[in-house]
Amino acid sequence: MEFGLWKPPADVLHLGERWFIKLEVAGVCPEEVEIVVHRNTLRIRGCRRDMLLEEGYFYHSLEISYSRFERIVELPFTIATDSIRWEYREGMLLIQLQKEDAS
């Protein structure tokens, strides 16, 4: 069971010292994405807005969660804040980061 805002699914993977977080946030406006880092946690917030909003569209059924989302990801290390890079590609938000020590 989920509570609160909707949570996009996330993968966490790493290539050596480089860690990647992949977030499934299709339809989200990249400009509105907000990433906050605190020690070993990463909080990603944003909002998915419906892009088909012209007159006459009529929902028969709905399964995609719109509006704001929030996703908190915990990592097994303290994150180096200045190492964070991100890009939005093909509906996925791809975040790149490194351990504080290693940087």
Partner: peptide, 28 residues
Amino acid sequence: VHMEHPVVVGRARSIAAVEAALAGEEKT
């Protein structure tokens, strides 16, 4: 707040309200 509940909407005015919400960007 934070709870999720299924609701069945039957009253015409309520259906209209839901339709209007669905027509919004955020579906709220």
